[in-house]
């Protein structure tokens, strides 16, 4: 992201006039309204109303932190957070590892590179709903993968993650990885292409193996790419919703609930707006916690003065 700002002296030289450049201001009005009214205003509104006892309709009956207290005492929320933590950690690690490995394989000057890339990336074009439904079908215990392997003669083969509360999250993970790793691979590949050929020559001269060169030299050089990928994966994980709705519906029982789903259920189904607002504020907090260190790493060093 290159948010280059003007030199501050430029606009200070002349007297400020509201109507200077007025057409540009008028044309930017949709952007200004979106930024201020929807993004800032909407977020502030939700955070404010999370301190009220709103149920069916938002109202200003202040209850302090009651909604948050109730939230953290609700099993469903705790399950949601745990699920997101498991899914998030595994998805982050595996996406990075698989994405980078695939990119490294494709970067070895192989043939049919673009065919492989097309195959790895096409799931990303599909929606989470489609992804979830396909994997729901493949993992169907009666007719899917499990029955096929049993049909081959392995009678006791059991692979039924979607109907087991303990493993359902891994079923989601299989589908999520299928959909998302291609994107990370693409980003990693772009990063690898940006690395100087001379590094490889130098490594060969020094007799360092290929794998060792990747781990010791290339990966440290690609730190910015990894950070971007990480932010990307993390912001995708927090939004996790469609996939769960399509693939498991949160079940069996509550075992694959996630926070985004909790928010929407409480806001639009259970008509408990206050809970929904509190839960979404917690989601916002987690994003802020992720984003601040990243913004610091990304922009902190470049600040003037």
């Amino acid at each position: 992201m290159t948010v280059a700002s003007d030199p501050p002296g430029d606009s200070a030289k002349r007297p400020r006039r509201l109507f200077k450049n007025w057409m540009a201001k008028l044309a930017s009005l949709p952007m200004i309204l979106t930024a201020l009214v929807v993004f800032v205003g909407g977020t502030a509104w939700t955070v404010t109303y999370s301190f009220t006892g709103s149920r069916m309709l938002p109202k200003t009956k202040w209850v302090g932190f009651d909604q948050y207290e109730r939230l953290w005492n609700t099993d469903r929320w705790i399950i949601s957070i745990k699920n997101l933590a498991i899914y998030g950690c595994l998805s982050m690690i595996l996406t990075l590892v698989i994405g980078f490995s695939l990119a490294a394989c494709l970067d070895r000057k192989i043939r049919f590179e673009s065919a492989f890339r097309t195959i790895f990336l096409y799931p990303f074009a599909l929606s989470f709903v489609v992804t979830g439904l396909v994997w729901q079908w493949i993992l169907n215990p009666e007719f899917g993968l499990q029955s096929v392997v049993r049909g081959w003669g392995w009678e006791s083969f059991t692979f039924n993650p979607l109907n087991d509360p303990n493993t359902v999250i891994y079923g989601l993970l299989i589908a999520g990885l299928w959909q998302g790793t291609g994107l990370i691979m693409c980003i990693m590949l772009a990063g690898l292409r940006g690395i100087d050929e001379d590094i490889w020559k130098a490594a060969r001269v020094d007799g360092i193996g290929v794998v060792k060169t990747y781990v010791m030299v290339i990966i440290p050089m690609m730190r910015p790419v990894f950070i971007t990928a990480l932010v990307l994966i993390a912001s995708g994980i927090i939004k996790l919703y469609d996939l769960v709705v399509a693939q498991t519906g949160g079940g069996p029982g509550l075992s694959s609930e996630v926070p985004a789903k909790y928010v929407i259920e409480y806001m639009f189904r259970a008509q408990n707006l206050g809970q929904g607002f509190a839960a979404s504020t917690m989601m916002l907090c987690s994003v802020v916690i992720i984003l601040i260190p990243w913004a610091y790493l990304e922009f902190g060093g470049r600040k003037r003065g």
Partner: peptide, 24 residues
């Protein structure tokens, strides 16, 4: 124009806000 970069920065930060906080 004055403030254009500020609005733009807010817009970009807004892209990271979970949609759930703005739904209602």
């Amino acid at each position: 124009f004055r403030g254009s970069e500020t609005f733009f920065t807010i817009l970009i930060i807004g892209a990271f806000i979970p949609y759930q906080t703005m739904l209602y």
